[in-house]
Structure formats: structure tokens, C-alpha cells
Amino acid sequence: MRTGLVGAALLVIGAVLAVATGTHVDDLLVLAERIWPVLLFVVSITVVAELAAEAEVFRVVAERLARIGRGRTVALWALVIVFAVASTAFLSLDTAAVLLTPVVVILARHIGVSPLPFALTTVWLANTGSLFLPVSNLTNLLAEHELDGIGAVGFLSLTIVPALVAVLVPVIVLAVVYRRELARPYEPTITVPVGDVVLFRSSVVVLVVLVPALVSGLEVWIPALAAAVALAAVFAVRRRTSLRFSLLPWQLVLFAAGLFLTVDAAQNAGLTSIVAALAGTGNAPADLLRLASVSAAGANVLDNLPAYLAAEPAAGSRERLVAVLIGVNAGPLVTPWASLATLLWHGRLAALGVEISWWRFAGLGLIVAPLTVVASTLAFAVTR
């Protein structure tokens, strides 16, 4: 509910700023035309992920991972890394944070190890692992629009190097910080049969078809919406009680819409010139690092979404736009509000009784965020 209230407040603030700055209705229509496919994708993919979780797909995957790990925590952790990156890349960072957090926490408890390295792996890689595809992050979908519809393959070819580095750096930090916990052995858990085989198999089929469809070149909201409708139809027959209003991420949509409107109005009030002065110009490695650093700082001060919108006009080239994405995707690891995925992650942890103070989170983030942004930006700069 807090997210929805903040979103409503942002809509009011954005509307007031729009009136005060003389924003034209045509400009607001252009903004709406740009963001509605993004928000429709978010709604659709969230419904797909929630229903797949109801069908126990993610629990079964977690149990299979535990069995494949063969009693070695570090091997299981490596599998969780792969699962987290894949989920983030194809289902978006918010979806990964919401659905994987309870899976990895329950999994860690079942095998008798600390859930913290697994929980931090989820939230860090949900953010830093969101550079691979347009669907991985709302910021990427917005950037793809600026890249003239480059498509999933083109986007991946542009971001693959910084994306891999952005995954590697947090993994190295986690391996060092939690080396003792990850070295412990565990007893593999007993596999529990799924409650409804038809729902489970239907969800698996939908996900298997959806993943390649998201990178097929279609506008991503089309396959996501089709998948949501297909799964909803199956659940309407097999388990209608699961089709509840809470499946729809209305608070997230309200929050995102409020951010879009507020930042758009703030840009008309002079935010663009301020960010441009801070971000500088040029495509040299130092220039790209400056832009990525400003974007990362903006994400931690505001949120990654408004930080992207504020920094986007300062890009001006593909290379600089990727630097912005590195900053706002891989950088928001310090403050709780830097990424909505982080807030959702912490809410799930609290519900599961797992405690990690924001001070510890911020302290670790102050180590990993600068390392990740700098390493990813320089890797991109020398290989572009």
C-alpha cells in the first residue's frame, strides 16, 4: 500500500509541476504513448510469474537445484546465480526479486545454511543482472526506444560485455564475504510432489514458449500479455480462487506512472540542464565513467527509473546511453529506495523473518556498487 500511496503522491506532484512549467497536453500524450507498452508488459509479466509460482514451478526448480548441488553449498549457490540471472534477464528484475527471494530463503533453511548469501545474491543480481535484454528492466525498454527499436539481439550484442562484468563483480564480493557459509556441506532435501500436475505442466509450457517469444523481435508486451491470458484461462478452469485482484501490480504501475510524470515535469523545470552539466560530454572511457557514475548516484538518491529519465537527454550516443544504463541498473545497491526491486525484496525478507539491517545492506552496497559500475563501464569502453 505504501508504494501505491507514494505513486499517487507523485502523480499529484507531477501534475502540479506540469501545470507550473506549462507542459503541453501533446507532450503528455507523447509520454503516455511511450510508457503504456512498458507498463502493460510489467503487468502481464507479473501475472505470469505469480501464476507460475502458484503452480509451484519455482519451488520445483529450487528443489531440483538442491538435488543437483549434491550436498555442496557452493555448487548450489552457483546454480542459484544462474537461476537468478536467467530469471532477471527474461522476467525482469522486479519479478526476480519478488519470486526468487522466498524460494532461495526457504531453500537455504531446508539445507540448514544462512539465507543471507542467497538473499543478497538474489537482490544484487536482480539489479546488476538486468543489463542483458530489453525486458530485463524498465530502463532498458525505455532505452530500446531511444535506440530505434534495436531489438533483443541487437541490445544484447551492445550490452553483453558490461552485463557479464556486472554479474561477475557482485559474485566475487559475495564469495569473499560469505566464504565460510558457502563452504559448508548440506543434506539434500526430499522432493515434494506438485499439488496440481495440469497447472504445473501448463505453466511450464507457457514459460518455455514465452522466453524465446520475448527475444523474437515482437514488442515484448504482446507475448507477455498472451502468456498472462493463457495462464489465467487455465487457472480459471483448475483453480479460480487464484485469480484475484492482488495479482495485478497496480501499486507498481501507479508508482512508475507517478515517477514518469514527475521527472518529465521536472525536466521542463530545468533538471535536464543540471544533469547535463554534471554528466559532461564525449565517448572516451573517462567520459563514459563520469556519466555512469552520475547515473548511479542519481539512482541511489532518487530511484533508478527517474535517474534514467533524467540522464537520458545527456546521452546523445549509443555508447553514452549504455553508460547511463550501467549506472542506473548496476549502481542502485546502496540505498533501499534506489530500486523498487530492492524494496520488494526487503518486504519479502521481513515476511519470512529474515533480518538484515539497512545499515549493513548500505555498507556492503558501498563496496560492491562502485566496483561494479567502474568495472562494467571500463569493460564496455575498451571493447565497444
Rank of each mutant, 00 (worst) to 15 (best):
A78Q: 02
A75S: 09
A66C: 13
S87Q: 11
A86F: 15
R59A: 13
T73C: 06
F58C: 09
T88H: 04
L17P: 04
E56S: 11
V25F: 12
A49V: 14
W77P: 07
V82W: 01
E63P: 04
F90L: 09
L65H: 03
V47Q: 08
R64D: 11
S44K: 06
A66E: 15
A62G: 10
R70S: 13
F58Q: 09
V57N: 04
L29G: 04
S44I: 06
A49E: 08
P37I: 07
H24T: 14
V25L: 14
R72T: 12
L100Q: 07
A89R: 05
T95Y: 09
A86D: 05
P37M: 08
V42G: 00
E50P: 01
V38E: 07
L76N: 09
T88D: 06
A32L: 12
T95S: 13
A62F: 01
A53T: 14
A75R: 13
L100A: 03
W77D: 05
V38L: 12
L31C: 09
E63D: 13
L93E: 08
H24C: 00
A62K: 01
T73Q: 11
R34N: 02
R70A: 14
I81L: 10
W36K: 01
V80N: 03
V47F: 13
L76M: 11
V57G: 01
L51S: 07
V85G: 10
A86H: 02
V61N: 00
A66V: 08
T95N: 15
V80R: 00
L29K: 12
V30Y: 02
E63T: 14
